[in-house]
Simulated scan of single mutants.
Amino acid sequence: MTGRVGPDQVRTITCVGTGVIGAGWGAYFLARGFDVIAWDPAPGAEGRLRHLIDAAWPALTDLGLADSADRARLTFEPDLARACSETDFIQESAPEDLELKQDLLARIDAVTAPEVVISSSTSGYPMSDMQTRCAHPERTVVGHPFNPPYLIPLVEVVGGKLTSEDTVTWASDFFRYAGKSVITMQSEVPGFIANRLQEALWREALHMVNAGEATVEQIDLSITDGPGLRWPIQGPLLTFHLAGGQGGMAHMLDHFGPSLKSPWTRLEAPELTAELRDAVVDGCAEEAGDRSIDELVAERDAGVIAILRALGRV
């Protein structure tokens, strides 16, 4: 589109919504040397944003900052129109409420130059459902990150029915330029790819807790000390490919295919009763012990960095 800067020419990014995801995006973009303009109407949003960025900065410094990285390049703008008036790219990270996102994207669209790409951090809504009120829906796209966005590399990019192919290509190229690992999806799927896989594991975990078959700690340990150690290296399908030995996936499917009919999983979500909720919440509290949220975040960040370094991805 005429007037759109190239993906490698982006200098200023507007982060609309500064909760955990939006603030994480802000920290990441600052660490990569961009100017960041942030907008969020919630009372106290600026203070929470700066706190999260400060908390994330040691981890980002450990990973390696861009030469031009500077937290002073953050501007908090209380007026949405001004926040979007002079920017090269917008990342929206509002709460997961379809009506809210439809309205907010339309408001962003109305005050932003028509060539600027508007990306949404939605965890599951198709862009086709969110872009319905935009005057320029062709420049709206999903850029789905993972928490925390300042550490987890993956971004899933997919457009809606009214999104132009140029926008999807531009967004994918920009995220790669910004240092992300990008999946450009061929078509919309509610929840995208990774969240659908996460959801299957999450639902089965809830079933086991609900039935008293396993504790929260046992479920977490089964992944951290089990298959989770393999997944950062080769993913679940290549892991199963190796389970077939020299015969690979073909032998694995021939040999273990009948087990697909075994009652090893229950993909229907259980009723989230008060008892189930309390069991999960209490289990997490028991597993966390005396560690605060900040301490758990620092522990997680250090672990992710160690894995990334061990895998040569830094």
Rank of each mutant, 00 (worst) to 15 (best):
M1Q: 11
M1H: 14
V5E: 00
G6K: 15
V10H: 04
V10M: 03
R11A: 12
T14Q: 07
T14A: 14
V16A: 11
G19W: 01
I21D: 02
G24C: 08
G26K: 11
Y28T: 07
Y28M: 07
F29Q: 03
L30I: 04
L30R: 05
R32P: 03
R32V: 03
R32K: 15
G33H: 10
G33Q: 10
I37Q: 12
A38C: 11
G44I: 08
R48K: 15
R50Y: 08
D54I: 13
D54H: 14
W57L: 09
L60G: 04
L63K: 15
L63N: 11
G64D: 03
A66Y: 08
T75F: 10
E77T: 08
D79L: 11
L80E: 03
S85L: 05
S85C: 12
T87V: 13
Q91L: 02
Q91A: 03
Q91S: 02
P95M: 05
D97E: 05
L98C: 05
L100M: 12
K101D: 01
L104K: 09
L105Y: 11
L105Q: 05
I108F: 08
D109F: 05
V117Q: 03
I118E: 00
Y125H: 08
Q131P: 03
T132Q: 08
H136Y: 10
P137S: 08
V142G: 00
H144K: 06
F146I: 02
P149K: 05
E156Q: 02
V158N: 01
G159H: 00
G159Y: 02
G160F: 05
S164I: 07
V168K: 07
V168D: 00
A171Q: 01
D173Q: 14
F174E: 01
F175T: 01
G179T: 06
I183L: 01
E188T: 06
E188L: 04
E188F: 02
P190D: 04
G191C: 05
N195V: 00
L197K: 00
A200H: 09
R203D: 02
E204F: 12
E204K: 09
E204A: 09
A205C: 14
A211I: 06
A214H: 11
Q218L: 11
L221V: 14
S222L: 09
I223G: 06
D225R: 14
G226L: 06
P227K: 12
L229E: 07
Q234F: 13
P236A: 10
L238R: 15
L238N: 14
L242Y: 14
G245T: 10
A250N: 13
G257R: 13
L260K: 15
L260G: 10
S262L: 13
T265Y: 13
T265C: 12
R266C: 06
L272T: 14
V280A: 10
V281F: 13
G283D: 04
G283Q: 09
A285Y: 14
G289P: 09
G289N: 09
D290T: 15
I293N: 07
D294S: 15
A298P: 11
E299N: 13
D301C: 09
A306H: 15
I307D: 02
R313D: 01
